[in-house]
Design a protein around this nucleic acid. Structure first.
Lengths: 200, 200, 200, 200
DNA sequence: AATGAATGAGACTTCATTCAT
DNA sequence: CATGAATGAAGTCTCATTCAT
């Protein structure tokens, strides 16, 4: 009855908890959440099955921690770009920076993104976390743009749209999914389109 | 090892196979692939558990058929628009038609789309089918546009990009995910952007 | 989700369900509920672990069925004595018959009684079933006695008391627990006491 | 295999051992033996899990100590009544005193009694301890009665019987189990019956 | 071709006990 | 003596698939 999930204080324990999260991260990314079992996570982390339940309520709890870490990884680099924004705005170079960064994020995290995002439909908390991520990014970007004096009426919509385009481009780019697509040409198209989007 | 997955010839059997696929479709859409078991599918289809394995190699085989049907449903309406394309091209009204149609498709199939698409990362065949769908649509649209005399250098890229934007818009629109987004305003933005994309 | 617990219709299946109950009965009686696991029950019944969950919701559900059967076994013989009650009442021979019958019941079911009764404190449903058993017996006996014209003011109390004495005597008698007790002498004492109880 | 269950000498250690027993007592009473785990006991006692095995061989060993304490609690008050017995015997008031005392014991210890007694069937040592308790009480009472000059032939049987009736009455009385029973009326019946039992 | 009972591997989780510190 | 993290065997239950009828 409400027996305690360990909140590790000591260095060794923190390492162990992190090793479990790391193992979850890797296995979920490689095989997906449903194709990974707790025994595999424990083994991959080099711990016993039992201790997993010392640090996590259940398997899903590991998922949530993995998700949390992923969200940070995905969020931070883009936000840093906006934190260091220089005026006057040079949209074209800003876009280029963002696209590069997004591609880089995808390159490093594509598998886990897929594995986690695929749970959106069957796990509400996961879905909400992704929504929250999108929302936070959009609002942050909108606020930053407003702060530098760019404030058209439909800014939320434009930013959101731009983010989705860039993300979906980065995703395809990393996986090089379609042989009929020249991703460099596509990049040019996207930048052109986005410039037109942010130009009244 | 007498492999003997039935290819049903008689009317009753065809019905039965289709009923199973239909049941899979509905249950996967409602509960997701991993939360649906074969007994439920059989029951929902009004057949015995055993006979499911008369028509399908395994559970995944049902998935593949469901996927096939979904792909048709998603593909056909858009293709019909292009089959009936009238010259001279009126891009703006064409876009509007496509957006409406895509939203309509999403409205009717959002759940199954999510359920199936979430398997993309863990099941290669599913992933490939989605890629194929995108490819077929892109190529088809490109061919049609070329046939009516619209043939810029980077047409594949533009079409692909446009498709993704529209799909992602339709998805969000149907689920109404973000309270900070005004989906009508967004629609206006998208149309504007896409017009600029297809205008040299 | 509410997948169905089989209610077996066919002869073979009924046998199988009963074999599982029987196995539960024997193992619970021998080793106790907590020291018996589902695998053992399945093995003892000669079935697979899986099918146990085809017939029963969970392990406790087996317990409840075992309990139900035990209650019938314990209830029926005593009730039959009262169904065949002859007037005028000969209390002494009636008591003797009841005591013999109760001892007989205990001889055949002492272990399962202990195993089940020991769950009274940790499982409310089990506790209630035992209460119900006592209540039913008491009320039935009271009604029968009233029907033959024996109706003192505190009949419920007297009957209940008598039942408990007889049961506790039968229990000890069967186990021959105390070497310092002569169970024949004790029987005489009990009969004497009970006669005085039912004599105004 | 240096067996080394500590027999604590120092004051602090004795406290610690007692605190563990006390914790076991409370948790077994509240949740039952099988629903209590050693971590809970340790936590409740304010000690570490590990040290529990410094003072006790295993979980069952705690049980045995708890049982021992319970037996004392249940035994002592009744024995005191007999230690202070005054001649000439006034059976009626003696009975009344004993019944009150037994009810009081039950009121304070009903939960732990249930929890421990329920183990009778699956743990021989526990069973024997309860038998021993009954035996000690019976013999003690018999000896005391003989000492004051009451020595019928079947005294053991009568005393044992009386004890059981009173205990079972006290149990029901405390739990107020049966709505069809008036426990005051029942008390009168019992006293009447017991008087007749001890009157030749 | 059809049924649905049956199988059994394997998933998740708990907990008495041990052990490094 | 003491800690509490760690172990891993064992328990409950699920479900894709098979098989007797």
């Amino acid at each position: 009855m409400g027996e305690s999930i360990r909140t590790p204080q000591q260095k060794r324990s923190i390492d162990k908890k992190n090793r479990i999260i790391e193992a979850g991260y890797e296995l979920f990314a490689r095989d997906g959440y449903f194709n990974t079992n707790t025994a595999q996570i424990a083994k991959h982390a080099g711990v016993s099955t039992g201790i997993v339940y010392g640090y996590f309520r259940d398997k899903r709890d590991i998922l949530l921690e993995v998700l949390s870490i992923y969200v940070d990884k995905a969020f931070t680099p883009i936000m840093e770009i906006f934190d260091n924004l220089k005026t006057p705005l040079d949209f074209e170079s800003l876009l280029s920076t963002i696209i590069d960064s997004t591609i880089e994020i995808h390159r490093n995290n594509a598998s886990i993104h897929e594995a986690l995002h695929s749970l959106t439909s069957s796990d509400e908390a996961v879905g909400n976390k992704f929504l929250e991520l999108e929302k936070d990014m959009t609002i942050n970007i909108v606020d930053t743009l407003k702060a530098v004096g760019y404030a058209p009426d439909d800014l939320y919509e434009r930013v959101h749209l731009a983010m989705e385009m860039i993300q979906s481009y980065a995703h395809e780019c990393v996986y090089d999914l379609h042989d009929y697509i020249d991703y460099d040409k596509m990049r040019t198209s996207i930048i052109k389109v986005l410039l037109s989007l942010f130009t009244d």
